[in-house]
Computed example of a mutant assay.
Amino acid sequence: MRIDIDTGVCIGAGQCALTAPDVFTQDDDGYSALLPGRADDGGPLVREAARACPVRAISVTDG
């Protein structure tokens, strides 16, 4: 699973970190970031976090 965060689009709503806290966090400026080494954890919560993003800054692809 590949997770991409478009940092130019992210507004720091934090829905990703609330939905999948084992994979996402917020950086010092409040924007979405992946926790180190957690991108492979994937699962349905990661896809739900991408859907929950109000500006669609997160994309999840298989592979």
Rank of each mutant, 00 (worst) to 15 (best):
residue 60 V to N: 15
residue 47 R to F: 05
residue 16 C to W: 00
residue 51 R to L: 10
residue 41 D to S: 10
residue 36 P to M: 04
residue 32 S to E: 03
residue 52 A to E: 11
residue 42 G to D: 15
residue 44 P to L: 14
residue 22 D to S: 11
residue 13 A to S: 15
residue 30 G to A: 09
residue 13 A to H: 08
residue 43 G to E: 00
residue 49 A to W: 02
residue 57 A to W: 09
residue 17 A to F: 02
residue 6 D to W: 00
residue 30 G to N: 15
residue 47 R to P: 03
residue 44 P to G: 11
residue 41 D to L: 09
residue 37 G to Y: 10
residue 41 D to V: 15
residue 22 D to G: 05
residue 5 I to Y: 03
residue 27 D to L: 14
residue 46 V to W: 09
residue 9 V to L: 10
residue 27 D to W: 14
residue 25 T to L: 04
residue 13 A to T: 06
residue 7 T to D: 02
residue 32 S to V: 15
residue 35 L to G: 03
residue 58 I to D: 00
residue 46 V to C: 09
residue 18 L to D: 07
residue 6 D to A: 06
residue 58 I to H: 10
residue 59 S to G: 00
residue 63 G to K: 11
residue 1 M to Y: 09
residue 18 L to S: 13
residue 5 I to A: 01
residue 30 G to D: 03
residue 43 G to P: 07
residue 37 G to V: 04
residue 7 T to G: 04
residue 22 D to L: 08
residue 26 Q to P: 08
residue 15 Q to S: 14
residue 20 A to N: 08
residue 49 A to G: 14
residue 5 I to L: 02
residue 29 D to S: 15
residue 58 I to G: 06
residue 61 T to R: 10
residue 50 A to P: 06
residue 54 P to A: 14
residue 27 D to M: 08
residue 28 D to L: 12
residue 21 P to W: 05
residue 58 I to F: 01
residue 53 C to N: 08
residue 49 A to E: 01
residue 49 A to T: 05
residue 7 T to C: 00
residue 31 Y to E: 07
residue 9 V to D: 03
residue 58 I to M: 05
residue 40 D to N: 09
residue 48 E to L: 14
residue 13 A to D: 14
residue 16 C to L: 11
residue 45 L to W: 05
residue 21 P to A: 13
residue 60 V to K: 12
residue 40 D to Q: 13
residue 45 L to N: 13
residue 6 D to Y: 05
residue 48 E to C: 06
residue 39 A to K: 06
residue 57 A to S: 12
residue 47 R to S: 00
residue 10 C to K: 02
residue 39 A to L: 01
residue 30 G to L: 09
residue 37 G to M: 13
residue 43 G to W: 12
residue 6 D to L: 04
residue 41 D to Y: 03
residue 22 D to F: 07
residue 8 G to Y: 01
residue 28 D to V: 11
residue 56 R to N: 15
residue 14 G to N: 08
residue 23 V to L: 03
residue 34 L to G: 04
residue 32 S to C: 15
residue 42 G to A: 14
residue 16 C to K: 09
residue 53 C to V: 11
residue 10 C to N: 01
residue 63 G to V: 06
residue 31 Y to F: 15
residue 38 R to N: 06
residue 17 A to H: 02
residue 19 T to R: 07
residue 11 I to K: 13
